[in-house]
């Protein structure tokens, strides 16, 4: 199972980008499953189910931060996607906290940001950008050629090892290289680890336990099929 994790602030165009990627993957015979992680509202699961007739789910992180929620439910989600017959699991997450990032080792980390968001954004988003494999820049038709170039330079300065791709998510132009990257991604390893170091905190993830799956954590946790529950003494 290939694992693609897409992060980016609200309304940057994550869903538009992923819809184009999904359309191309489904058209070439790949089996996708889609999981949306958001805080309190999302309908992307319905959109993807309707448009591509693929297994989809959503999970609301509620009181948990979405990245934290992603760590807890991702193990279950891979199992669910496998049972649903998928060979690629696409996870779209809100990624609200800029101290950590939801990407895992062995999966593809895709970050979406809009060209309209200001020249300092690449300097502000921290690991969400710097730990991604590729930064996808949307809404390029709304800014000048000059600003596109400066924005790209700012991204490359903040995250030199991250590839940058400008796309027109309206028409789906510039999407093919993203599809190629998904296809080049190896199957996710058995033991999944968060790519970056979590921030300082008091929960098991925040104090640095990187292993994916609620079974590895204690305190207030949740499974894909449950609401939050307590695990521990």
């Amino acid at each position: 199972m290939k694992l693609v994790i897409c992060a980016g602030s609200a309304t940057t165009g994550k869903t538009s980008v992923l819809r184009h990627v999904a359309r191309k993957l489904v058209a070439t015979g790949h089996h996708l499953a889609f999981l949306k992680i958001d805080v309190q509202y999302a309908d992307e699961d319905e959109v993807f189910a309707r448009e591509f007739a693929i297994p989809t789910r959503k999970v609301y992180s509620g009181e948990l931060c979405p990245d934290h929620c992603s760590v807890l439910v991702l193990g279950d989600a891979l199992k669910w996607a496998g049972e649903a017959g998928a060979d690629i699991l696409v996870v779209e997450t809100a990624g609200l906290c800029l101290r950590c990032a939801p990407y895992v080792d062995g999966g593809l980390g895709l970050m979406v940001m809009e060209a309209t968001s200001g020249m300092n954004l690449p300097r502000k988003v921290g690991p969400m950008l710097s730990l991604a494999d590729i930064a996808v820049v949307t809404k390029i038709d709304l800014v000048s050629q000059a600003e596109r170039e400066v924005f790209r330079a700012r991204i490359m300065e903040a995250a030199p090892s991250v590839r940058v791709r400008e796309v027109n998510a309206l028409y789906g132009i510039g999407i093919d290289p993203l599809v190629d990257l998904v296809l080049q991604t190896p199957d996710a390893p058995e033991r999944l680890l968060l790519r970056g170091n979590p921030p300082v905190g008091t929960c098991t993830i925040c104090v640095g336990k990187k292993e994916i799956g609620w079974q590895s954590h204690f305190g207030v946790v949740r499974a894909l099929d449950n609401q939050n529950f307590y695990r521990g003494e």
């Binding site: 309209t116 020249m119 709304l142 800014v143 000048s144 600003e147 596109r148 170039e149 400008e166």
Partner: peptide
């Protein structure tokens, strides 16, 4: 398409604005 600074076309649309 891959690198805007190699793009041989500059487009100035009616809604092109500086947001920076």
């Amino acid at each position: 398409r891959d690198d805007p600074s190699r793009n041989p076309i500059a487009l100035i649309t009616q809604h092109t604005n500086f947001l920076s």
